[in-house]
Design a binder for these strands. Structure first.
Lengths: 214, 214
DNA sequence: CAAAGTTAATCAATCGATTGATTAATTAAC
DNA sequence: GTTAATTAATCAATCGATTGATTAACTTTG
């Protein structure tokens, strides 16, 4: 029973921290607020994770590793490259939509210089592996004559950048789409399919060789 | 003479603050560090701008207004929509490449919740106007039959998101492009033309109606 | 022109508040 | 009864901001 509760409480803190870090940023989220939002004494934070940075590290690590494996599974299957890209994009959009705060955190982690932490390196290395995976699929598609000879790095940036922009600037997106707020339901039921459709359409027209060019 | 020196010093602090805010984030940049980097007493910060938030506000405002006008000039000219989009993208990439820190700041401002400031609203309103400008050009192009019937909002997100991603995650980009560092020279001479070429190619294939569809 | 008066610019020192982290004491669990 | 979990209290350090004093530069006055 104690074991169960301990895990639940740690897990709960991780969930709360993911949201608060995502909303306020690392420096903006104080340990007191984190503990308060989680409904526990702030000493528990250090008891569980050693430090504030350790908490962020735990928040980041528990998600990154699992996602990596899913990406690799798709990339190593035997199917047309277009199908691979399609599935990767689908998985990525799905992951981002269901854990928006997490993706805010990791994007901020690679765009802001925080001094004296190892979290950034971990994030950077993992993102790099993910990006290179897409990179290789694109290169393979071009080599096989399935894709046009596009700028691979820019195409990758186009995919990740578009998704990232929509998720990380929800307030701007809400304004544009004339919604007073964008809750999780709208994100899942409206934004996600539209984003997916756009990416597929955009990539299809950009990557695939048109009839006129044949 | 005194007037000249005063302006230069304020301007100098604005420049330094833009870099430091961009590198470390608002909460990550302390007033002491800001003053130290600018080589002046930290009381000067409050003397000039009232508060730390006032400094950020000044940093943001001096750039946003001017860019807005340039965007509008292009949009209101009499030319094909494709040419408008082309010029807007060109201007935007150029602006971002020459003031990378500033764009880090405003993107963070709309993605992080900072309590009790008015800077966010200012940024949000200005970005909204810029986005709607592109929005209207795209809508016009579709109405005139110049463009395919794409998802306008997503297309806009694709443009701004791609540029934003490349600039705000330079460390990841460096890793992908196998550069140990990405200095301003590389950014200007390599990244910028590649990004521009990609966006034009991507938008062309996505927006313009292909021969096969006619 | 020179002395007195006035303003803006700059500084070191310090304010109260908050930060992340730690302690020692207490409670709960098995 | 021993270990693990939890708490309130407290730590030094740093935060943004303000103070009163000092300097420099310009204006006014005689």
């Amino acid at each position: 029973m104690a074991e169960k509760e301990k895990i639940d409480k740690k897990e709960h803190l991780l969930n709360v921290a993911e949201r608060v870090f995502g909303e306020m940023g690392y420096d903006g989220a104080s340990t007191r607020l984190l503990a308060q939002e989680a409904g526990m004494n702030m000493a528990m934070l250090n008891y569980y994770f050693g430090s504030k940075d350790g908490l962020l590290k735990a928040v980041v690590e528990r998600r990154m590793s699992s996602t990596r494996k899913e990406f690799e599974e798709i990339a190593h299957q035997d199917m047309p490259c277009w199908e691979k890209i399609n599935q990767i994009v689908q998985l990525y959009v799905s992951r981002v939509a269901t854990s928006k705060y997490f993706h805010k955190i990791i994007f901020r982690e690679i765009s802001v210089i925080r001094s004296g932490t190892e979290v950034t390196d971990f994030v950077l290395e993992n993102l790099y592996q993910n990006v290179m995976l897409v990179h290789r699929v694109l290169a393979e598609g071009i080599r096989k004559g399935e894709f046009r000879e596009v700028d691979i790095e820019m195409t990758v940036a186009g995919i990740f950048g578009t998704v990232n922009y929509l998720i990380n600037s929800r307030r701007l997106a809400s304004k544009i789409l004339k919604m007073d707020l964008m809750d999780d339901h709208v994100l899942q039921e409206e934004m996600k399919p539209r984003l997916l459709a756009y990416l597929q359409d955009s990539l299809k027209t950009h990557l695939l060789i048109h009839e006129t060019e044949k």
